[in-house]
Design a protein around this nucleic acid. Structure first.
Length: 455
RNA sequence: GGCCGGUUGGCAGAGUGGCUCAUGCAGAGGACUGCAAAUCCUUGUACAUCGGUUCAAUUCCGGUACCGGCCUCCA
């Protein structure tokens, strides 16, 4: 298995520290508002990686952690804007997020830790850094001393000189070096906070992931993931904290970063009016279409979202489910996933290549004649699709949705049309078909009779 | 300004130092069908640009142009 490792800036063979417990940590969202498309892409990509790891090492030999940041100034701002309590905001947003993930068929990670439940671990980590002289106190803050770490910047590949040249680092008079970042900061009495050796305050963002990953996965683990925008400063600072607090440990061996999501070729932003939340997009297309769409581009590339692409993904799924609909009553045999698909996914999660083989498997299924061949083709397709997290739905439900009384009415019209066809009254038969088409119901004749679908 | 990444056919999007060939959508033709739909078969079109290395480059190296990302919160 191979992964593109940001540390080495190249693809390298993945060798876990412990094959019996492969450990992965992926940065999750800050819960202050509905998750947007970018917040959806990253978990979908790492969900595929999780599935591939489970397939290779066994489900019980993989530990996957994805955190929830529930203490942050953005949440504080939301509280000021809306007047809603912090707790109300984070609980509601968390629930929305979990629901969105479920719709996208993202498997639940083994742990979904919340920052506020690991404050003690964070305080311990700060104490360790102070003791090792990698941090210092100033005006109620505790700051990480970047000058205490000679190779600070090794992950993102930038030198201290460059960072200062950037000159957009927040300058504060209490910082020894402008690049020093906050580990702990003071809170006002009306702000969320916890008592600490440095007074009432709250943790800096970077600290959370270092503390939670250490607690749940250990001081050295295999994969750390996230969007490429997190490389600097977030992941760089996590490295600084964790490596300085635990000398001799490796923190994460493989850093895996997904390309940014864009909309119509440019960065998604509220000011450009091309900002979409997951639930907004799911009003226009099934969640599975969005999931498939994310997988049509290699995760490492920037991903360009368009509604045309979303519609195309939906049509692709129609094609796939059409094939499955024909063999809906066929039992699966003992076939396993297509080896080419496993190989493609184990080669740095090459989902576009894997999908091209899915198309081939669908074609094979459509052409299969004997029951034995059909069962084999169906099983291979479903087992392969499971690695990608697609085709999990019942094909009839995919096309018909949750229809109630409507179905009986349609069946009645189909019977009428069959009668008309028998009498060679094609005008009436075509009228029934066209009337239904206007209501979004498509009829398909076959030697076995007529079936219908919703479009 | 600094640091990264990209540029493949009408569109989306893999991949490869030479071979017949990604794949999908769209287009063209055909089979099946009362007609459709679905499905199947056949088919055209490509590697930004200029140099270099090589027997051979879309693929490796370098320059140029263009596009995007990061450098501040961000998945």
């Amino acid at each position: 298995m191979y992964l593109f490792n940001t540390l080495k800036r190249c693809k390298e063979e993945f060798v876990p520290i412990d094959e019996n417990n492969v450990r992965m940590y992926v940065c999750g969202p800050t819960v202050y508002d509905r998750a947007h498309l970018g917040n959806a892409k990253t978990p979908v990509v790492f969900d595929v990686l999780y599935r591939v790891l489970c397939n290779k090492y066994g489900k019980n030999h993989v530990t996957y952690v994805s955190n929830i940041t529930d203490v942050d100034d953005k949440i504080l701002n939301k509280h000021k804007e809306t007047g809603k309590s912090i707790r109300e905001i984070t609980e509601q947003t968390y629930q929305w997020y979990v629901d969105d993930m479920a719709k996208l068929n993202v498997l639940a990670p083994n742990y979904r830790p919340r920052a506020t439940e690991y404050i003690n671990e964070m305080i311990e980590l700060v104490e360790l850094l102070l003791k090792e002289r990698h941090a210092y106190e100033a005006q109620g803050h505790v700051l990480f001393d970047v000058d205490s770490m000679p190779n600070y910047g090794f992950l993102s590949g930038r030198s201290m000189k460059e960072m200062i040249a950037g000159a957009r680092i927040e300058v504060a008079d209490y910082k020894k070096n402008p690049a020093d970042f906050v580990l702990w900061k003071p809170s006002d009495a009306d702000q969320p906070g916890w008592n600490s050796p440095w007074g009432y305050g709250r943790p800096g963002w970077h600290l959370e992931c270092s503390a939670m990953s250490s607690k749940l996965l250990g001081n050295s683990f295999d994969i750390h993931g996230g969007g490429s925008d997190l490389i600097f400063p977030h992941h760089e600072n996590e490295c600084a904290q964790s490596l300085c607090a635990h000398p001799g440990e490796k923190f994460a061996n493989y850093w895996v970063h997904g390309g940014m999501l864009m909309v119509d070729g440019v960065k998604m932003s509220k000011s450009l009016g091309n900002f979409y939340t997951i639930d907004q997009v799911l009003e226009k297309a099934p969640a599975e279409a969005l999931r498939l769409l994310f997988l049509t581009t290699h995760y490492h590339q920037p991903f360009n979202f368009t509604f045309e692409g979303l519609e195309a993904a939906k049509q692709t799924l129609d094609k796939f489910y059409n094939a499955l609909l024909r063999v809906k009553d066929m039992a699966c045999d003992s076939s396993s996933a297509d080896e080419r698909i496993v190989n493609a996914l184990e080669d740095d999660i090459n989902t576009p290549l894997a999908l091209s083989y899915i198309h081939e498997l669908v074609n094979t299924l459509n052409k299969a004649e004997s029951d034995v061949d059909k069962a084999k083709a169906k099983t291979t397709l479903l087992k392969s699709a499971e690695l990608l997290g697609i085709l999990w739905q019942n094909p009839e439900e995919w096309f018909k949705g949750s229809v109630g009384d409507e179905a009986q009415e349609i069946e009645k019209l189909i019977a009428q049309r069959a009668e008309a066809k028998k009498n060679k009254d094609y005008a009436l038969a075509d009228k029934i078909r066209n009337d239904l088409k206007e209501k979004g119901i498509i009829l398909e004749d076959s030697p076995q009779g007529t079936t219908w679908k919703k479009i």
